[in-house]
């Protein structure tokens, strides 16, 4: 297990290093002079030089990269060009909102996907199964930026049950969480179904049935637990889609999270903030995925043993 842990952490570190480097390079893909783009064409030459110096863009690329790593190691994300505040502080304000949204979306996805996937698997090849799978296909195909407005139209404007946007109380969380959760629920329910169908054909399920256990006990206690393993991996991998979707969902609902901050920063050409946001979201994703890997290995001894040998 120790060997497995070390190899996973090492590869996570390598990825973190690579992701940071790509994010560093982002500012250098801005066409033309990034400083001119940030300040506008009418800016004074002296202002430009000042900003260039402040961002360290007048230094050789290699020195810039080293400074960047140095600052990152001290958790120093720089200062916003727009608000002149430390980006780290802004991030700490926006992060809870995004974490809350992502978590709520995840909960919605699981609440929908498990019953749906289990029902579809147990009632395979019935109208219930094809209905559930049709729903899931629809869920995969509806983008967040259409689902969101549609939910607002229905629940906020027509029925008047829930707020249109913002982050005030729990009611304002419902629609964004539904928007974010549906797509994931669709993918997850297919996964639950496929994985459960595979397990239901195993010998130990037949044994459980032969023992005279009730069907619900066979499915929920014996089959589902074994079917969960591949589902957990998918859940971890899909978190990336969830975090990416959160950016768009936050815009639709004016949710004051990191996604909103990213898009605002892009529109204001506040590139250091853009870099910091992309870095933070990606690193959380890497962290969660590494954690999923470890949980997976902890749950399934076959994996850590295979890697150890």
């Amino acid at each position: 297990m120790l060997h497995f842990l070390a190899s996973r952490l090492l590869s996570a570190l390598l990825v973190i290093f690579g992701v940071s480097t790509v994010v560093f390079l982002l500012i250098h893909i801005v066409p033309g002079d990034p400083v001119e783009v940030m300040l506008g064409e009418a800016s004074q030459a002296a202002d430009r030089e000042a900003l260039r110096h402040a961002l360290g863009l007048d230094l050789p690329l290699w020195t810039q990269l080293m400074n960047y790593y140095g600052h990152l190691l001290q958790f120093d994300l720089g200062t916003s060009l727009q608000s002149k505040r430390p980006i780290g502080d802004m991030m700490l304000e926006a992060l809870p909102a995004t974490a809350q949204l992502a978590l709520a979306g995840m909960v919605v996805a699981m609440l929908v996907a498990f019953p749906l996937g289990i029902l579809a698997a147990v009632r395979k090849d019935t109208p219930l199964d094809s209905g559930a799978m049709a729903f899931s296909m629809l869920g995969i195909s509806i983008p967040h930026f259409w689902m969101g407005p549609l939910l607002i139209l229905f629940f906020s404007l027509w029925l008047g049950w829930l707020p249109v946007s913002g982050r005030d109380d729990w009611a304002s969380l419902v629609l964004p969480a539904l928007t974010l959760g549906t797509g994931l629920a669709a993918i997850l329910s297919r996964m639950v179904r496929a994985s459960l169908l595979e397990v239901l054909g195993e010998d130990f399920v037949r044994t459980a049935r032969a023992k005279g256990l009730s069907e619900s006990r066979v499915v929920l206690r014996h089959a589902l637990r074994n079917a969960l393993l591949p589902v957990i991996t998918v859940l971890g991998l899909q978190l990336g889609t969830l975090l990416g979707g959160a950016v768009i969902t936050e815009i639709v609902f004016s949710w004051p999270g990191v996604g909103q901050m990213t898009i605002d920063a892009i529109n204001r050409r506040d590139y250091p903030v853009v870099q910091a946001c992309v870095l933070l979201i990606s690193l959380s994703y890497v962290g969660i995925n590494t954690l999923t890997d470890l949980v997976y290995a902890w749950l399934d001894p076959r994996i850590r043993l295979a890697e150890d040998s």
Binding site: V15, G18, V19, V22, L239, G240, T241, L242, L243, G244, G245, V247, I248, T262, V278, I281, S282, Y285, V286, N289
Partner: peptide, 8 residues
């Protein structure tokens, strides 16, 4: 692959 979905 470490960049989530559409973010990059």
């Amino acid at each position: 692959l470490a960049f989530p979905g559409i973010l990059l």
